[in-house]
Design a protein around this nucleic acid. Sequence first.
RNA 1: GCUCCCUUCGUCUAGCGGUCCAGGACGUUGCCCUCUCAAGGCGAAAACAGGGGUUCGAGUCCCCUAGGGAGCACCA
Length: 468
Amino acid sequence: MTIRTRFAPSPTGYLHIGGARTALFSWLYARKHGGTFILRIEDTDLERSTAESVDAILQGMTWLGLEYDEGPFFQTHRFPRYKEILDRLLVEGKAYRCYCTKERLEQLRAEQMARKEKPRYDGRCRDGVANPPKDIPPVIRFRNPQEGAVVVDDQVRGRVVFQNTELDDLIIARSDSTPTYNFTVVVDDMDMNITHVIRGDDHLNNTPRQLNMLLALGVPPPVYAHVPMILGADGARLSKRHGAVSVMQYRDEGYLPEALLNYLVRLGWSHGDQEIFSIDEMTRLFDIVNVNNSASTFNPDKLLWLNQHYLKSSDPAHVARHLSHHLGQHQIDPSQGPPLTDVVISQRERAKTLAEMAAGSVFFYKEPDGYDEKDANAHLKPAIAPVLADLHARLEALPLWTTEAIHEVIAATATAHDLKLGKIAQPVRVALCGRAVSPPIDQTLFLVGRARALQRIDRALLYLGGKP
RNA sequence: GCUCCCUUCGUCUAGCGGUCCAGGACGUUGCCCUCUCAAGGCGAAAACAGGGGUUCGAGUCCCCUAGGGAGCACCA
């Protein structure tokens, strides 16, 4: 049997962290077993589904590299098929038409709540309606068994038993004849031969209903695995309130997809004490049985740490490609300056995100607009002018513009003026970068380039000359 | 309210009856290194929700309580 898993988001928003992890687990499980990963768009809610959301989800999947083997399938394209099954269920007496009005249903619910009962349909139309009202378009309800129990042998939860008396006859087709979620899921999982349903914990309560429908349809159920939810820092379910929840927002903030993936895979799943997993490793090592069963809280700091880890350890050329995009955000053309891979190497251990790296690298390509006031006051004092002038001359005279040669020149200048290295590096930094933070000063000078460096030192001298 | 699920350091987790006075990671913190910022190295503080059982022995099994989450839609 070949494994077939699916990710089935509803297009009512972007791809968020929770959905991305569910997709990752399903993808990983299929990949690990050489199976098939299917993308299905559950868009039966015509009111809330949008084409923009579909695009956003697809874009998120692509950025993460979670490529699907089949799909995307759209449920709205499968209405004839659902109709077919609906009719079959009706004919077989496994479903029935219900003429109860929304008003009556609401009232029923209110009464049950008042009596502290679980709100549910009372089955008024279950045994047939003598005179079906012509003016009320009926909904179709599934005739759920009234006795016995449904057993869910969940791969992460273990055995969960639901009494059928707790379930009611759910609506499987609305009065406008469109099918509803619990029903379309069942038909699709059946038609698409899904073998493993890996989905959020919030669906555990839907599972017995789906199992009953599968039973009525006479097909063997898939294996279920309900993964725990991801909570926000306040313990509540992750939502827009918690900041960056859209996967694409992480791209914009300068995260590498492999870092996000690594972070997500460790949320709820573990392999001993290992923290770092390449895509290959996670597909090889992942297993649903190692998924734990308690909800986890999203921890931005750890994601940041992982991101820097990948920034530091990935191929600089790979990081450079991503950095290029972020430099573009600063109207920088990376071809007009030092090679991007060199910039990456000099900056990667002092940036946690690509956005940060880009912001800290602008000076390589563009003269700073001005000096940071605090840094200039601290380091660009008149007394340093002669030192800068001397350094300028020595750098200009340097036969070879290399990091090593530059380093020696700075050291020699410092010695000549009886200064510690830092006393000269900081002013030069401010002159070159506009502020007192940059990679090692010799590297910084080297990467900025001789012409630009001398020009910026001149400007600093001018600035100092203007000071009393 | 009812039903279902969950509960180890602040956070992510290891632990699958003895090897646990509970291990790793992020974060916090001390020291070292150092031209800035970092990165790095070596340390430190920090948890089995509470209560009953079962057992020679429980973080590990069972029950109860408390807390948290989810579901109970003509949403998915």
